[in-house]
Simulated scan of single mutants.
Amino acid sequence: MPALLLAGPPAEPLSLAEAKTYLRVDHDAEDALIASLITAARATVEALTRRVLIDQSWRLVRDTWPVSGLIAVPVNPLREIVAAHVVDAAGAEIEVSLAAFTANIARLPGLIRVDRAAVPAPGRAVAGIAIDVIAGHGPEVDHVPSSLIEAVRLVLAHFYEHRDVPGPGAAFPASLDALVAPFRVTRL
């Protein structure tokens, strides 16, 4: 089941000023580079942990409703379901009531229970169902576990220091694994 990013985080886990202080950069010549490295570092930590750090909007796309009535959410931690619709045979979107869904936000990966009797069947065989969710630790940096913020700092420093080094010399430091291991979401 594909998950499509609708809206990224409203902010990065590190500000440009925090990143420059951590990198011990006292000039403005590389601000654009450092800003892009912050985003890349966050995305790397998210990929390593299979977690979204700061709240983001995602769309889960399905062909059919699951027979079991359970949908494992590929973006975590799941915070809430915000909208759902099916596409009918004519291509029109039909809104599905959120009362037909129950979000289990206490487990990782998140799980959505669908009341199959309360949802219409899609009229299109491919990508006929869309469920919009919010995933992340919260809307602000303060909600992100400090170990994950430190992992972003570590990756940022690694990217900054090794931007010209290809191959095995550019491997992440071993301490990164220790920071992210407790937060990895296992696949079902």
Rank of each mutant, 00 (worst) to 15 (best):
S97G: 12
P109Q: 03
L98S: 03
S57N: 14
G123H: 04
I134V: 13
I94W: 09
A181S: 14
A171P: 04
L14P: 00
L60D: 09
V67H: 15
D142Q: 10
I34C: 06
A92Q: 14
R79V: 11
A43N: 11
P122K: 07
F101I: 08
V96S: 05
L156P: 07
E150N: 10
S97L: 10
D177L: 13
P9L: 04
L179R: 02
R153V: 01
R184G: 08
G8C: 04
I112H: 04
A89K: 14
E80I: 11
P66F: 04
I112N: 06
I94A: 11
A41Q: 00
D115H: 09
E95T: 15
W58I: 05
D28A: 14
L111C: 08
R184S: 08
A117R: 09
R24M: 08
L78E: 02
P166A: 09
L156V: 02
T21G: 09
Y160K: 01
A72F: 08
H162P: 06
A17V: 03
G169L: 05
I131R: 05
L14G: 00
S175G: 12
T102L: 11
N76P: 05
A178M: 10
D28Y: 07
V61F: 07
G110A: 05
D55Y: 11
R107N: 14
K20P: 05
R62P: 03
D164A: 13
S36P: 06
E140L: 09
V52M: 01
H137Q: 07
H27L: 09
E95F: 10
E93M: 12
P182A: 09
A92M: 11
A151L: 01
E12A: 13
A7K: 11
G167I: 05
F183M: 05
S57E: 15
V75T: 06
P109Y: 00
E80C: 14
R187V: 09
P122W: 04
T21M: 04
R113S: 09
V75C: 02
K20R: 04
R24Q: 12
A121K: 14
T49R: 02
A127I: 03
A90L: 13
T49D: 06
R124H: 10
A106W: 07
L48Q: 11
R187E: 15
R187I: 07
A174Q: 13
I81S: 02
I105M: 13
A99F: 10
A157S: 11
G138V: 00
L23C: 04
A125V: 12
V87R: 15
S68Q: 06
R107C: 12
T102C: 06
A43R: 12
P109K: 04
T49P: 04
A19H: 00
V141F: 03
L156G: 09
V119A: 04
I149T: 03
V61Q: 15
E95S: 15
A43F: 07
T186S: 15
L53S: 02
F183A: 08
R42L: 05
D115C: 05
V180L: 05
D63F: 09
H85C: 10
G128I: 01
A99N: 12
D63Y: 09
S36E: 13
S147E: 15
A11V: 10
G138R: 07
I94D: 12
V152T: 06
R116V: 06
V82E: 10
L70P: 06
L5E: 03
V180Q: 05
L111S: 08
V96W: 07
R184F: 03
P77G: 07
V180G: 05
L23Y: 00
I131W: 03
V86T: 13
F159D: 14
A125P: 12
A100Q: 06
G136H: 01
R124E: 13
